[in-house]
């Protein structure tokens, strides 16, 4: 089964969703991402969904739960580049993704994540970067 790649950039994990999300893919992503956050000690997660054209309630809920899991692990989730049609669909489905920060594009999303890292005096990536087990 194919999986969505997760890239690590400093203290941030970047996921870009380039394919149509189906349910198993979404579940796998949540699993991989959680494991990755724990392994790398990432503080920010940037999910880029500008290529995502179709969402259903399940995918919407997955985004919420990814954000919730990340928050538990002290990483903040930013969803970037949502298309207007997707935004309308999610709102109509009653999924307003409260608790997830949003950004218009990757650039702004990255700035948001970086701003948080800098705020916490951790601008140069993960604290565990140097001494990984």
């Amino acid at each position: 089964m194919d999986r969505i790649p997760i890239l690590k950039l400093g203290g941030t994990l970047i996921v870009t969703i380039q394919v149509d999300m189906h349910d198993r893919l979404a579940l796998a992503l949540e699993e991989d991402l959680t494991a990755m956050i724990v392994r790398t000690g990432a503080r920010g997660v940037l999910i880029e969904i500008s290529a995502l054209e179709i969402v259903d309630s399940f995918i919407g809920r997955m985004l919420v739960s990814i954000a919730a899991v990340s928050r538990v692990l002290d990483a903040e989730t930013v969803v970037a580049g949502m298309r207007p049609a997707v935004a309308i669909t999610l709102v109509e489905l009653g999924l307003e993704l409260t608790g997830i920060r949003t950004a218009l594009n990757v650039e702004r999303g990255m700035a948001m994540v970086q701003a948080r890292l800098v705020e916490e005096g951790d601008g140069h990536g993960s604290s565990r970067d140097g001494h990984e087990e």
């Binding site: 969803v79 970037a80 580049g81 949502m82 207007p84 997707v86 935004a87 309308i88 999610l90 709102v91 109509e92 307003e96 993704l97 949003t102 950004a103 218009l104 594009n105 702004r108 999303g109």
Partner: peptide, 12 residues
Amino acid sequence: LKTVAAARLMGA
């Protein structure tokens, strides 16, 4: 509120 929520999802 729906409009506001949709705009927020877009990052505005």
